[in-house]
Nucleic acid binder design. Structure first.
Lengths: 223, 223
DNA sequence: CGGCGCGGGCTTACGTTGTACGGTACGTTC
DNA sequence: GAACGTACCGTACAACGTAAGCCCGCGCCG
């Protein structure tokens, strides 16, 4: 490091990668311009030579994630949509979901930027193209995109946060009055066993996805 | 106002109402402890006698909205779930959606607090109860809640933001290469006419909802 | 080879945010 | 009337995003 490292050699690329790393490791809230700069061995203001502002960093994160998604989708060898569009789309969505699960902060970032990103548009365009090849009209394809919503990208808000939710017995009892059906449901599912871990998010996600895909298939082949 | 108004007569209630009003009128970002205090004719720190911190204000906003939802649902006269659960649930969801549409900031707040709120749990409990009366097993009810996700509350992320999205002709042309199917879809729908306003969010929402409800009905009645 | 523009970094500073801490005036209760 | 809790105010601070300006070394020009 002759001359004590001028020229840290930043770049938009490196900044965004570092940002994703921070979000992955310490959560989205820990991603500040200062922490980002520090992780690159640089002062905060230096970042502004490569990104316009923090919003642009968030935009960039969407691109980073979508690049991973695109890659995961490309690596798939799915059936031709003409033969089995449901499997083809299902695989695509689940591949995308795997990426999103690796970056739990991503849905939160996406939500504030829907439609703004070309990368996201490209993904949905691909889904629509798949449906076209399967014989969907544009109109049905359009409605299908709406029906899928964020599920097409592999997430929908998970209803109950996976963390916390201890439920220390007496709280559970107090709850029983307020939400009897939910309590009964949990009791039914666990048959009196352990309460947490009873709910497999992955398979629930797939259930909802298949529900929609089956419904669309019935509409596609024309009632 | 003898003595130039000591005793502004705050209360958790009044604070939360004011917070909702600010979010309604000036957006969620405009809701700061200072702006909130000012709208009540009070200093920021005074609020802390009625709410623990800003997080608690956000939590409170969820309660405010859910109270409106509960009220809207109560005012419904829906068919008994035993007779026609699909209509009953559909009406409930759409009533809820109407409330959410009046408070566009609400989904964003909900997303960061899923599961934390008793009010939300109560709502889902009601939905599950409805399904039980319709003959759902707890297991199918559980999966149904997952399948519906936030749609049960009347929102899912709208795919493309309703605002902005001008698309000034030349941008559209450049886009065509990147997202040909989307562009074709819009062209098909509008038959060369106006581009924006071609997409009716309400009816698309209903389409997706019915798709799911129909799928669930088929599962409920077995095989 | 000398100068010089400029790109990429640093320093400093400002306004806004949430909130900790301590003070002060009222209403109530002995 | 003394003591006290409740509700409010004022001040202050740390962390945030970012505007503005400086400074140095590289590469191009003459």
């Amino acid at each position: 490091m002759a001359r004590a490292g001028q020229q840290a050699g930043l770049s938009r690329e490196r900044v965004l990668r570092a940002a994703a790393a921070i979000a992955d490791e310490r959560g989205l809230a820990a991603l500040t311009m200062r922490s980002l700069a520090e992780s690159l061995g640089v002062e905060a203001m230096s970042l502004y030579h490569h990104v316009a502002n923090k919003e642009a960093v968030l935009d960039g994160l969407v691109e980073v994630v979508m690049a991973e998604v695109e890659q995961a989708v490309a690596a798939l060898d799915a059936p031709a949509p003409e033969d089995d569009w449901q499997s083809a789309l299902r695989m695509r969505v689940l591949a995308s979901r795997e990426v999103l699960v690796r970056h739990p902060w991503a849905p939160g970032v996406f939500e504030t930027r829907t439609g703004a990103s070309l990368a996201v548009a490209r993904y949905f365009d691909g889904v629509l193209g798949l449906m076209r090849r399967a014989g969907f009209s544009y109109e049905l394809g359009h409605r299908a995109l709406h029906a899928l919503g964020s599920r097409a990208l592999g997430f929908s808000q998970e209803l109950f946060a996976p963390d916390g939710m201890e439920a220390p017995e007496e709280v559970m009892a107090a709850m029983a009055e307020e939400v009897p059906h939910l309590v009964a449901m949990v009791a039914d599912a666990s048959h009196g066993g352990a309460v947490l871990g009873w709910c497999d998010y992955q398979s629930e996600f797939e259930f909802g996805l298949d529900l929609i895909l089956d419904g669309l298939e019935r509409l596609r082949e024309g009632a």
